[in-house]
Computed example of a mutant assay.
Amino acid sequence: MLTITTAAIALMMQGAPASACTLGRIAGNPRETRIWVSLAPSPGARRTARVKPGQPVFLCAAKGVWVFVRFADRRHSCGGIGSRPARAGSTCAEGWIERRRIISER
């Protein structure tokens, strides 16, 4: 049991998407060039990144009207999204975005 827990923690720390995450996309219209990602699920939280409409993301958790997402950006490869291979060493950028900005691809 301890080995399984340790392995799960190691994968989370490497940035590999959790198995509970599903694939989705950022919603928006063509005039919106970027949509903000927040550090916490709150309108007053610090904004940490921006994503583009149509960009693929992993949907990993929800809290109220907020969804915790993991995604690729300039510094994070986030394997398993788009044409990027899923590999143990990939990392993802992450943060919270309003649910209305998400299209689930289940």
Rank of each mutant, 00 (worst) to 15 (best):
M1N: 11
L2Y: 04
L2G: 15
T3I: 03
I4D: 10
T6A: 08
L11T: 00
M12P: 00
M13R: 13
G15A: 06
S19E: 08
S19Y: 09
S19R: 14
A20V: 12
A20H: 14
A20P: 03
C21F: 12
C21T: 02
T22A: 15
T22Y: 08
L23S: 04
R25K: 15
R25V: 05
R25Q: 11
I26V: 15
I26T: 06
A27Y: 09
A27L: 04
G28V: 08
N29T: 09
P30W: 15
R31L: 10
E32F: 11
T33A: 05
R34F: 05
R34A: 10
R34D: 05
I35H: 12
W36I: 03
V37E: 00
V37R: 01
V37G: 00
A40K: 04
A40Y: 02
P41Q: 14
P43M: 14
P43Q: 13
G44W: 06
A45S: 13
A45N: 08
A49F: 06
A49Q: 03
R50D: 10
V51T: 11
V51F: 06
V51G: 00
V51C: 06
K52W: 04
K52C: 03
P53D: 03
Q55I: 08
Q55N: 10
P56R: 03
P56S: 02
P56H: 06
F58R: 03
F58A: 02
L59N: 01
L59A: 11
C60Q: 10
A61K: 02
A61E: 15
A62S: 12
A62N: 07
A62T: 15
K63H: 15
G64N: 01
G64T: 04
V65G: 12
V65P: 07
V65K: 07
W66N: 00
V69I: 15
R70E: 15
R70W: 13
F71S: 00
F71C: 03
D73T: 04
R74Q: 02
R75M: 05
H76Y: 14
S77H: 14
C78M: 12
C78P: 04
G79C: 07
G79P: 01
G80D: 01
G80W: 01
I81C: 09
I81E: 01
G82S: 10
S83L: 10
R84G: 08
P85C: 07
P85A: 13
A86M: 11
A86Y: 11
R87Q: 09
R87C: 10
R87K: 06
R87S: 14
R87D: 11
S90P: 02
S90Q: 13
T91F: 05
T91G: 14
T91Y: 04
A93V: 00
A93S: 15
E94W: 03
E94Y: 06
G95M: 02
G95Y: 03
W96Q: 10
W96L: 09
I97T: 01
I97S: 05
E98T: 06
R99H: 10
R99F: 11
R99S: 07
R100T: 14
R100P: 04
R100M: 11
R100Y: 07
R101P: 02
R101N: 13
I102G: 08
I102N: 06
I103L: 13
I103C: 02
I103N: 13
E105W: 06
R106I: 00
R106P: 09
R106V: 02
R106F: 06
